[in-house]
Design a binder for these strands. Structure first.
Lengths: 233, 233
DNA sequence: GATAAACGTTGCTGCAACGCAAACAAAGCC
DNA sequence: GGCTTTGTTTGCGTTGCAGCAACGTTTATC
């Protein structure tokens, strides 16, 4: 790992407020790894032997129900920790993490997490703050699933994605990794058919442009209005 | 607070592994309070000035959407912490906490939380473990809302409640606080009408017995089969 | 004990969204 | 270039469940 890399890593949320030397200690014990597209970083129910820092790419966290239905819990962007099950008192991963594109990540053995958290208080605090945010997010999603109908949920999901990974193009904000109708359905608790129908309607109205596994939001503002229900669908 | 009380409190999950003297330090700074039925311990959006330990009673945590719909996030039983928003990096409460019955609780100023967590590592670790469990729970609920239909969600909710607060009676396991059809609906993302219909069917089949704001699960095992979908409804 | 308020039940109707099926389109592969 | 695989679109029938409305029942209030 080059000097430059370390400087960039120091800016990431999980390491805010840490001393450079402490960060070096952590990085010294990390294993760098590449994950090819559509392979798993870790699997649901598997023993939580490591935790990870995503450096490049996008990862989807997926839960599969006993009867085989998939739910996408969230997408992870570079700079975020994943697989911290052990830090929350679990011994197995509660979900699978699949690389949506080719990825680069750092890995540490799980047992080191508590050592790091104890030795570098900022690191522990940052993690717990992130966990707090995730809890918030999960609750927000429960509310959404309980009270809002499909079109609004899908609109919301797209907005969250462009906020996370939106890349400006001539058409609008492109979601920067392959995203199928089925993926969107798995994020919002609906079916690919319903998503497909919604997308065609929105495309006709000029809200989005989309192709195979590709979504560009043309008019984020209008999509937001729809998501918030300030407009008749 | 009597000597006996302190002994009992020491057994509660948030204080496992703490020294008796440290616990005394904490309790010395707590304010004991009674909350009358159906009043708020804290309100959504309100400044998170305190965190609480529920000693007696049952509290429901409710989120209200901008358009007035209510969602019950969870019920809290004696021995659990609540209102720990500040510990997760928030300055306001993300939900309201309403006493389902007359309650007794201890309250500490929020700023003390980080002091306690730093001074008594077990306390901090216990809390984060609890937060981890809540995150798990929230995710499980998202999955459930995404993939299961109403009857199974309601069955699951009832099972969770009897597990938390079930009191053995001659009829079966009674949920030990007033619980209306609307409450169950708010827990499961449906309407009181649908819940009412389900309850009548289940009553006819001898799965439950219920009256006004009162639910007794007669055959938990059969209800579980229904919740898991191992039986045609 | 009469009146009101809160909670629960039940029939009916409508529709959002699911499921199925068939066809189409694009990408990968030999 | 043809073949397969994977993803998308779209029509049509079905249905779970919400929404409305009316009524019954229990608990509070004075």
């Amino acid at each position: 790992m080059s000097r430059l890399d370390r400087t960039l890593i120091a800016d990431l949320a999980p390491f805010q407020g840490m001393h450079a030397a402490d960060l070096d200690t952590m990085l010294g014990q990390a294993r760098s790894m590449r994950i090819v597209k559509e392979t798993a970083i870790f699997e649901q129910e598997g023993e939580a032997h490591s935790f990870f820092l995503l450096l490049d790419g996008h990862v989807r966290v997926v839960k599969t129900t006993p009867d085989g239905q998939q739910v996408i819990v969230r997408y992870i962007s570079p700079g975020e920790l994943l697989g911290i099950a052990r830090a929350l008192g679990r011994t197995t991963y509660p979900a699978s993490a699949i690389a949506a594109v080719d990825c680069v990540a750092l890995a540490w053995p799980s047992r080191l997490w508590s050592e790091f958290a104890a030795a570098f208080p900022s690191f522990g605090a940052n993690t717990y703050k992130a966990v707090g945010a995730r809890l918030q997010d999960a609750h927000a999603r429960v509310i959404e699933m309980s009270t809002e109908q499909v079109d609004r949920r899908v609109a919301h999901a797209l907005l969250k994605l462009i906020q996370q990974t939106g890349r400006k193009t001539e058409d609008g904000l492109l979601i920067d990794f392959p995203l199928s109708r089925q993926d969107i359905a798995d994020m919002t608790g609906t079916t690919l058919h319903t998503v497909s129908r919604l997308m065609t309607v929105w495309e006709e109205r000029g809200l989005v442009k989309s192709g195979r596994q590709k979504v560009t939001v043309v008019q984020p503002h209008k999509l937001l209005l729809l998501a918030e229900g300030h407009v008749d669908k």
